[in-house]
Design a protein around this nucleic acid. Structure first.
Length: 528
RNA sequence: GGGCCUGUAGCUCAGCCAGGUAGAGCAGCCGGCUUUUAACCGGCAAGUCGCGGGUUCGAACCCUGCCGGGCCCGCCA
């Protein structure tokens, strides 16, 4: 049974209606690692729906969180003054709108593309609207008990003047603001500059610290399930402290699902501020949304994912494509048996089917017979070799039976994305088709005489060859024949000469699309 | 120090929770097709399942002890 179905089954034992919560602080570009959370939640929601439960995904934008520091991608001139202020109240890096929205808007676009239906809860607004009032009051009234509980479970010593609410000063800053007095519904405070003031706790003016905020939102939103990053699941961390706090706030804790992190292959955990991250939007510029869903659906949440945005991403996409074909050929409609039933092989097939189904952007059953049957690696090659879309689809018409006059819209999308992938820095060198700049003298010296004859004959004649496919094709054939070689032995040499590797895309059309001057300049190095 | 995850074919991983004779893809090799769009088709080879102990009729799977790798415990998922 697929992991999302296992979670759904556990939820079914608890209730018929569920709210699956996720939240990410919009302090920077929301990267693929961040997005594991919301995708995990979506898969659970889908699995719940598939077994007839009501389920809703709630996304909490932590816009009330203060800017913690001036991140490397921010201008210190502007942002020094904003450290400690809520993300909802400070300007965006490009000056348009708020900081929080600046990073949330592209994220929400991703969610739409990924088919993730969600209700957005804005934390800053929710504090202002009084949604947190009951929890804030409980926290303040029972601050001594909470304080002891936090110290005991987290093993962390809290300051003598610790208070379960971080108020903002008159400049909107939360850092360094101390509570000096409390009388519901007000707190009095003093900031680092010695300024004092009074805040009404019922309408925002600050926020609960994270360890309290988390169970508080469970309480007022009614969260029943929540995936969370492993940083929250260490011993004594916020998940542990949230358990007793939840009962204090009068709710059952949700079913928690810790998930592992996504590493950028070879560079460790993704981090926007460290500059080794790919944002969700970026990924969706390269591959269709179902590939991103597949990345998450194929791995269990407890497994960390080594995300390779280069060759590995092409493999991933191709793997999806093969699974798609297999699904339509033999997996559709396979009976999903309860946990533990069925032969090993059969269980694997059931899970594969679910991996595919849960990767779909559209909800509901996958319609019949709509596999694209087009590998991403093949497409990557065509898009490099063909100057335009027409060329790609003409080729696909010949080799894959694609109707070039009315191609599948999904195929058009894949072609569009592949082109942006190729021009991006993410495109892997292993599959990049690159005309050699020079001839490797050692390689040339090591060849047989007939082999050199082939190359020099080919090179010499190319200059006078008309630059179209059939003329080039003829010239290739003539050169091979003149050298007394066979295509099988000759082609690897020609590829080696042009691309520096023994194989490549069909040669004549490839040369036709390459820059003529560059090719001829390379040829002159051989014929000399 | 505490916690979580992880170690299965050259590579990426599935299988472990629900014990029943080792799986997939890629790469490799061989063959087929071919005046080659890294195509496509067929086949082959490939693993002491990190190591030791235990439980069991039976362990990659459960328990236990080691060893290696990654990460988290300051509001970075």
């Amino acid at each position: 049974m697929h992991w999302a179905d296992v979670v759904a089954e556990q939820l079914a034992e608890r209730a018929d209606s569920h709210i699956v919560a996720t939240g990410i602080t919009p302090s920077g570009p929301i990267h693929v690692g961040n997005m594991r959370e919301v995708l995990t939640a979506d898969l659970i929601v889908r699995a719940c729906e598939d077994r007839g439960l009501d389920a809703e995904l709630v996304y909490i934008a932590d816009s009330a969180d203060p800017l913690r520091k001036v991140y490397p991608f921010l201008d210190p001139e502007t942002y020094d003054a904003h450290v400690g202020r809520a993300l909802a109240t400070i300007p965006a890096p490009d000056g348009e709108g708020t900081y929080a929205d600046h990073f949330l808007d592209p994220f929400f676009s991703c969610l739409d593309e990924l088919g993730i239906e969600h209700r957005v809860i804005d934390a800053y607004q929710s504090y202002a609207d009084g949604e947190y009032e009951a929890s804030v009051r409980t926290a303040c009234e029972q601050r001594d008990e909470i304080r002891g509980l936090l110290q005991r479970i987290s093993g962390r010593e809290l300051d003598a003047d610790w208070f379960p609410f971080n108020p903002m000063d008159d400049h909107g800053r939360m850092h360094g603001v101390r509570v000096t007095g409390y009388d519901w519904p007000h707190v009095e405070w003093r900031n680092e500059d010695g300024e004092t003031g009074r805040t009404d706790l019922r309408t925002g003016g600050g926020k609960l610290p994270w360890r309290l905020d988390w169970p508080a939102r469970w309480s007022w939103i009614g969260v029943t399930c929540e995936p969370f990053g492993k940083d929250h699941s260490s011993a004594g961390s916020s998940w542990d402290t949230a358990q007793p706090l939840a009962s204090l706030f009068g709710v059952e804790p949700p079913l928690g699902l810790p998930y592992e992190w996504i590493n950028l292959k070879g560079q460790g955990a993704m981090s926007s501020s460290a500059g080794n991250a790919m944002s969700g939007s970026e990924l969706l510029e390269l591959v269709p949304p179902e590939i991103m869903r597949f990345l998450i659906s194929r791995a269990k949440p407890a497994k960390h994912i080594d995300f390779d945005p280069g060759a590995g991403l092409i493999s991933l996409a191709d793997e999806y494509e093969r699974l798609e074909r297999r699904y339509h050929a033999e997996l559709r409609g396979i009976e999903q048996k309860p946990v533990g039933e069925g032969e090993r092989r059969e269980r694997q097939r059931m899970d594969d089917a679910r991996r595919f189904e849960l990767s779909q952007v559209a909800r509901g059953e996958v319609s019949e017979g709509d596999a694209l049957e087009m590998s991403f690696s093949h497409l990557s090659m065509l898009c490099q070799v063909k100057a335009n879309r027409q060329g790609v689809f003409d080729s696909l018409a010949r080799t894959h039976g694609v109707d070039a006059s009315a191609p599948d819209p999904r195929l058009l999308e894949r072609e569009r994305r592949m082109r942006s992938w190729i021009v991006s820095d993410w495109f892997p060198g292993e599959v990049r088709i690159l005309l050699q700049a020079d001839v490797d003298a050692d390689w040339l010296a090591g060849l047989e005489q007939t082999e050199r004859d082939l190359l020099s004959g080919f090179a010499a004649g190319l200059r006078s060859t008309e630059w179209d496919e059939s003329a080039i094709q003829e010239h290739i054939s003539a050169s091979i024949e003149a050298a007394g070689m066979t295509p099988r032995t000759a082609f690897p040499l020609l590829y080696e000469l042009l691309l520096g590797r023994p194989r490549g895309p069909r040669l004549a059309p490839l040369i036709r699309e390459l820059d003529r001057d560059a090719v001829l300049s390379l040829m002159s190095a051989i014929s000399d």
